[in-house]
Simulated assay, not measured.
Amino acid sequence: MVPRQHSERITIDGQDHEVRLGVWVSNQKTRRDKLSEEQVGQLAELGVDWV
């Protein structure tokens, strides 16, 4: 479970980025009926149990 307000700071090519992980997870759960089979499969491979 990821709280909606949770953010992660990541570095890509030497630049810091703030990723709003909680918002992303919440959006994916809300829109899971609209995800393609490929997207659902990728999330399942990552261990996401709600797909």
Rank of each mutant, 00 (worst) to 15 (best):
L35D: 03
R31L: 11
V23T: 12
V19E: 02
Q28G: 08
Q28F: 13
Q28K: 13
K34W: 12
N27R: 15
S26R: 05
R20C: 09
Q39N: 13
R9H: 04
A44F: 00
I12A: 10
K34T: 13
L35H: 14
G14T: 05
V19Q: 04
T11N: 02
K29I: 12
E18P: 00
I10S: 07
Q42R: 15
K29T: 02
Q39R: 13
D33V: 11
S26I: 01
L46H: 09
V40M: 13
R9T: 15
G22A: 08
W24N: 12
E18V: 15
G14A: 03
D16Y: 00
V23P: 02
D33P: 08
D16M: 06
G47H: 01
T30N: 11
G22N: 02
H17Q: 06
Q39K: 11
V25C: 06
T11M: 01
A44R: 15
Q15E: 13
W24M: 14
V40D: 10
T11H: 00
E37S: 11
E38H: 11
V23Q: 15
T11D: 07
G41T: 09
T30H: 07
Q39S: 14
Q39T: 10
E37C: 01
D16L: 01
G14P: 03
R32K: 15
I12Y: 08
V40K: 15
V40R: 15
G47E: 07
A44E: 13
Q15M: 12
H17C: 05
D13I: 05
A44W: 08
V25G: 01
R20F: 08
R31W: 09
V19P: 00
R32N: 11
K34V: 06
I10F: 00
G41K: 09
G14C: 00
L46Y: 10
R32G: 07
R20S: 06
T11L: 01
N27H: 14
Q28D: 12
D16K: 06
V25E: 04
K34I: 10
S26A: 13
Q15N: 06
L35T: 06
R9I: 10
I12N: 02
R20K: 15
A44S: 09
G41S: 13
G47M: 05
D33H: 13
Q28E: 11
D16E: 05
G14K: 01
E18W: 08
T30C: 03
S26G: 08
V40Y: 04
G41P: 06
V19R: 03
G47D: 02
V48C: 05
K29N: 08
I12G: 00
Q42W: 04
R9M: 07
D16A: 05
D16Q: 10
R32P: 02
R31K: 15
G41D: 11
G22P: 04
R32W: 04
Q42I: 12
G14H: 05
A44M: 10
S26D: 11
L21F: 10
